[in-house]
Nucleic acid binder design. Structure first.
Length: 213
DNA sequence: ACATTAAGTGATT
DNA sequence: AATCACTTAATGT
């Protein structure tokens, strides 16, 4: 429990007043989620708002055929923007969230969200700020998909992944990458080979090392 | 030794 | 950039 308290202070202390931190501790539930576990599914209602303490979360969009597309990652100190709009509007989630790494987070009941908006200016700033950040990241994702060619998208994907994992060696198969980027395995294999020839990455079985960060 | 899975490649659209 | 068809290489049983 002490650990969680320290964690809260470390990640959100510079943002929130002590009273707010205390309230979060009171009503929030600490949760640990293992790598690859789903945190939020498309169509599900949201009852809690997550505050990320540790780890990274992958945010995906999915089409009717079940094909996925990675939008962006959440890291410590972030919260999920989808939750914000869902909680306020009582709508279903339109995205899917999967734990990229083992994740530590605090679930805050959604009722508290609006309570705190009036009560704490730091909370208001945080909510507005993270909403702003998410919109930015979403626009970046749109740019990436619309304007970058597949090879650039792929390299960006690898760099982002290395970043959130704090590790330049990524454990993944070509097949899995192709699913995240919504393309085929053959295309990924070929582009990866090109990137390796350009000495931007090194290829191994089941893993890739990113050289240029 | 055999089966399975991951990755590399040429050809076609 | 997608798909097919095939090969090669690594790994599991």
């Amino acid at each position: 429990m002490l650990e969680i308290e320290n964690n809260l202070h470390a990640n959100f202390g510079y943002l929130f007043e002590d009273e707010l931190i205390a309230e979060i501790q009171e009503v929030g539930v600490h949760k640990t989620i293992k790598k690859d576990q789903a945190i939020m599914e498309i169509g599900s209602y949201i009852k809690f708002m997550p505050l990320l303490l540790d780890g990274a979360i992958k945010i995906l969009r999915e089409d009717k055929n079940g094909d996925e597309l990675v939008l962006y990652y959440l890291e410590k100190g972030d919260t999920c923007a989808m939750t914000l709009s869902c909680c306020l509007g009582e709508t279903k989630s339109k995205i899917r969230a999967i734990a990229e790494t083992d994740v530590n987070l605090i679930m805050v009941p959604k009722e508290k969200m609006s309570d705190w908006l009036g009560k704490y200016s730091s909370w208001q700033a945080f909510i507005l700020g993270s909403y702003h950040n998410r919109v930015d990241e979403l626009l970046e994702a749109v740019d990436t998909i619309a304007f970058l060619k597949m090879d650039e998208r792929l390299f960006k994907y690898l760099k982002d992944k290395a970043m959130v994992n704090h590790n330049d060696v990524i454990s993944i198969t070509h097949q899995e990458i192709s699913e995240d980027l919504h393309t085929s395995r053959v295309v990924i294999s070929r582009l990866l080979k090109k990137l390796e020839n350009d000495e931007k990455i090194q290829l191994f079985r089941n893993s890739i090392k990113v050289l240029e960060l």
